[in-house]
Design a protein around this nucleic acid. Structure first.
Lengths: 201, 201
DNA sequence: TTTCTGACCAAAACGTAATTTTGGTCAGAA
DNA sequence: TTCTGACCAAAATTACGTTTTGGTCAGAAA
């Protein structure tokens, strides 16, 4: 039996190569043969880790989101004020997503059109998971009196949703604009939202 | 010389027919011949009003936005409190856009991919124009002491941007979800944003 | 045994050449 | 002066033979 650590590292190597090839050629032109060659394994071995090309790319996206969630959770557990943590989480979330696909110059549409239904479903669940991380911080702020009362889950969903139009999705990072502008716009929205959360004297 | 009122009504009839055909067949399958037949005019007459198929469809979208801007301006001039007006404007904006393309079941992607560059450019300018309508109301609220001080233009852009992810764009209305849910989500976000705007005692 | 591989295959993608449809024009009708 | 539809080049579609590709699996490697 192969060590699961080794299995895991092969899996990671495949996903790393997927990222490179996706950036280089887009979804349709990226072939499993090329991918295997890039990783230095046999083609069949790719299918030991992923059941299909679509599943492979979806997993690659999942990995970006997993990493995001780890970073979000880390901030959520810091010791700063809840409002400061939320602000930081909102900004980091947008920039992480921006950076995660910055090198895909034109290929986002290609990818989206190829795997649309499953991708949209996952995207929805990613948002839900991300919102859940915000919930804990919001509840903390409510309990310590910083924030006004309210359904923490709904508030979390609103925070996420309100910054979603800044995420690369149908628009590539180029079409979205300069990274610094995205950052500034996110900060503006986050400020307004958080002012709204903070309890009035 | 033909009366400009008659010219205008033909133009409107063409745009009405464009809306119907776009809903029925999508951008690529909608032909100018069909369109002329639907309106009951000759094909060449279509080109008396629009210089190309792309321009035609762009004008159709412009019309949706023009109507939106008229409704936004109307609300902006009502006598309710600035915060109430802004809330109403934000909700109306999202629902107007939702209703404007609700009958395009699958064809938004088709349209987007066909006219992408010019469409994106216009979209950007639509947002800027919409934001400008918000500016006046925000400044009014700042002057009468309801709202905290701040760059009204930037605030307006934030309000618009924060609700943009609820607009049909790459996602069709079906993919966005139920109208009542969109309405609820918009209201949630608007509440949070406006709480953030309101001046603290 | 367990892990990995690449030859293999059906299906999809691609080239391409013949055919049809379509966006756009414009000479002349109304 | 306004409108039209026959007309045309270009683009889309079809038909079809060829190539490429996603996915499998019998057997090699470990």
């Amino acid at each position: 039996m192969k060590s699961s650590a080794k299995q895991q590292s092969t899996r990671e190597a495949i996903l790393d190569a997927t990222d490179r090839l996706l950036a280089r050629s887009g979804y349709k032109k990226m072939t499993i043969d090329d991918l295997a060659k890039e990783v230095g394994i046999g083609k069949g071995s790719v299918y030991l880790h992923f059941s299909s090309k679509e599943e492979l790319v979806l997993s690659h996206i999942d990995r970006i989101i997993d990493r995001l969630q780890i970073k979000l959770s880390a901030i959520a557990e810091e010791s700063a004020k809840p409002s400061a943590r939320l602000r930081k989480m909102l900004e980091m979330r947008v920039l992480h997503r921006f950076d995660g696909v910055q090198h895909y110059t034109q290929s986002l549409n290609d990818l989206l059109s190829a795997i649309r239904p499953n991708f949209l479903a996952r995207r929805e669940s990613h948002f839900e998971n991300e919102a859940q991380i915000f919930v804990a911080v919001i509840e903390e702020g409510q309990q310590n009196g910083d924030f006004a009362e309210g359904d923490a889950r709904k508030i979390a969903e609103s925070l996420v949703l309100a910054t979603n139009s800044l995420l690369p999705f149908s628009l590539t990072t180029q079409e979205l604009g300069e990274r610094r502008d995205i950052e500034e716009k996110t900060r503006q929205i986050a400020n307004l939202l958080l002012q709204g959360l903070i309890k009035r004297e």
